[in-house]
Simulated scan of single mutants.
Amino acid sequence: MPQHGLGHKECLVCDFVSILYSFGGEFFDENQNPVFNNEAIQAVQAMVDMVYKYKIVNPSSLMWTEPEVYQAMLNGDIAYSAMWGLPLVDLNNEEISNVVGECDLSLFPSVDGLHPYLVQDSMGWAVSYGTNYPEEACIYNSFQQRKAHLMQH
């Protein structure tokens, strides 16, 4: 049975973001004002329906976080999962995986079939307290975090 990490942790938020965007939803409008639109409501309902109506997500996932999902995937106990990083490295490692050669990666499908999504974390950028170049580091961080750069990467 498929699994999401729906425990009340970061994984729940990440799965919701992917599902929200697959429904065409947004967190912010063009002026960066928060919105909670109909697509967001549909995304939440889809997450509930995956567990209780369609039964394609095991109810135990309501308590799981990434490590439990990851292990279930390695064991071959679930059909799919939303995973971070480089999951194929471990999934194809014969020493720890029961599903070597049986897995692949894909984007989250969209409801309209035209706009698949993924959640990409831009990670945290900071300036070291001890740097000799604090101004340059701030400029570089601003460059790396600009919207146009994040949309490309």
Rank of each mutant, 00 (worst) to 15 (best):
P34W: 04
M50V: 00
Y54F: 09
L62K: 10
M50S: 12
Q32W: 13
N31P: 01
P59K: 08
I41Q: 08
M63L: 15
P59D: 08
Q42R: 14
Y21D: 10
L62Q: 14
K53Y: 08
A46G: 00
V48T: 01
A43W: 01
D29I: 02
K53A: 11
Q32P: 00
Y21Q: 15
P59T: 08
E39I: 00
F27N: 02
N38S: 15
Q32D: 14
G25C: 08
S18C: 13
G24Q: 04
I56R: 02
V35E: 04
S61D: 11
L20I: 10
F23W: 14
W64H: 14
N58F: 05
V35W: 03
P59Y: 07
L20Y: 04
A46K: 11
D49S: 07
I41T: 12
F27K: 00
V35C: 03
N58H: 14
F27Y: 13
E39M: 02
K55C: 12
F23Q: 15
D29E: 02
V44H: 04
N38P: 01
D49T: 02
V48Y: 13
S61Q: 13
F28A: 09
D49I: 02
N58D: 15
S61C: 15
S22D: 08
K55I: 03
E30V: 13
I41F: 11
V48K: 09
V51D: 09
S61L: 06
S61N: 12
G25M: 08
M47N: 10
F16W: 12
A43P: 05
V48Q: 07
D15P: 00
D29H: 01
K53H: 09
F36Q: 01
E30W: 03
A40N: 02
P34D: 07
S18Q: 13
N31D: 14
V35M: 04
V17H: 10
S60W: 07
V48N: 03
